[in-house]
Design a binder for these strands. Structure first.
Lengths: 221, 221
DNA sequence: ATAAATTTTTAGACAAGTCTAAAAATTTAT
DNA sequence: ATAAATTTTTAGACTTGTCTAAAAATTTAT
């Protein structure tokens, strides 16, 4: 069994690994968790004793198989709860993270199992992030940043990179949401802004937006 | 804002008050929470400073208006979550308490508000206990212990006094559940056991059972 | 009214998790 | 290869909540 704090460390390390970070060092973890290196140092020792990770000094940590499974289960809970909040309790996608941060620590295998059933076995959370299955496996889908699409290409909006409340609210205001079809009408070389077609309306989006929106490319333009 | 521990003390004291305990003393609280008097002593000081209760030495504690409201809100959350688990996630009534003990501490006014809506504004939890409203008010219904009914009287099963898993499972086995109509066929003076009619079947129940089941009396026998 | 029993509080310790400041280890630069 | 910069760990402190054991306060009994 893991404490709240241990779970948060595990999750942070897991996210760093999934995001492909190379050296997951004491400092990197401290930064991710907005804590101090000395605190991380203590916790690494503890987690290492609990055999969820292996630490090589100055090299960084690596989750063991057990560690990955444990962390994935926390992420699974987090994302299932997010789906619940949006689908059943009418939360908007920018409101769910904070609450899910609390709910993810509830300990009851039956609860999460039944929640999964109740929600219809969702595979992705409201931000398009994949929900790990019971074994901790992630189903990754082919997705590209909007900014990488070429003129006249199109696809379906399937996720966000930045899921800050500010960005999500901004997308709401622009009428951009998951599942929407987006077609690149034009690319502006000067500032890398795009002219896109969404819901049969023309919209201009900045490069910053285009670098934070994931698209599943359509097989024809 | 209250810590997990503070919330548990508040809830325990609230339950003692609702159950009509006279002197809610250091020792009484310690017993309720299976902790030591010295720990309670410390916590009473803390809660007193936070103005959720008033303590008169050797007399016991009394929740302030603010304290009652705060505690009732925790109980409200607990019971709403229990309804959720039973109604939506197919938990049985003997499985919900432990999970609700965790869920009741989740902090999000919107969450509990929307949960209430989603569940259709339930007034009672799966054990028949009333769910405090947003202001902390309890709607108490007229109910009597089954043991107090007279021969030929009948009523609807509306709650349990003991909601231990063992008792609830036992009721399941006997086919007794909330909402069922029960008629007293006979009372045995020797051991105070009852012969009752439920679902058109005759059943014998011990005095111990009869002292733990609440009935809403029917206006005719 | 005083002794006995009980209840409550205090004092000091411990565990978890955090922090600051300093020391130690390692890496990078010259 | 040595110095400089960086990273990491250690040492000691603090907070929350708990405990045991002893002291103090209060109530009950005689």
């Amino acid at each position: 069994m893991f404490t709240l704090s241990e779970e948060n460390y595990l999750k942070a390390i897991y996210h760093l690994e999934v995001d492909g970070a190379k050296g997951i060092t004491t400092n990197a973890i401290a930064k991710k968790l907005a804590t101090k290196a000395s605190s991380v140092s203590d916790m690494i020792k503890k987690l290492s004793e609990k055999e969820v990770l292996i630490y090589k000094k100055y090299q960084g940590v690596k989750l063991t198989e057990f560690g990955v499974k444990t962390a994935a289960n926390i992420v699974r809970k987090h994302r299932l709860w997010e789906v619940f909040l949006v689908d059943k309790l009418n939360f908007s996608w920018d409101e769910v993270h904070e609450v899910a941060e609390q709910l993810e620590h509830i300990k009851s295998p039956k609860l999460i199992n039944q929640l999964d059933v109740f929600l219809g076995y969702p595979t992705h959370d409201p931000h398009g992030d994949p929900i790990p299955d019971k074994e901790g496996n992630l189903k990754t889908i082919e997705k590209s940043l909007l900014s990488t699409l070429l003129k006249n290409e199109s696809g379906i909006c399937v996720g966000v990179d930045d899921s800050s409340s500010e960005f999500l609210k901004f997308l709401d205001k622009k009428g951009i949401s998951l599942g929407k079809k987006i077609t690149i009408l034009d690319k502006e070389a000067f500032d890398n802004s795009l002219s896109i077609l969404i819901d049969d309306k023309k919209l201009s989006v900045s490069n910053k937006i285009a670098n934070n929106l994931y698209i599943k490319k359509a097989h024809n333009g």
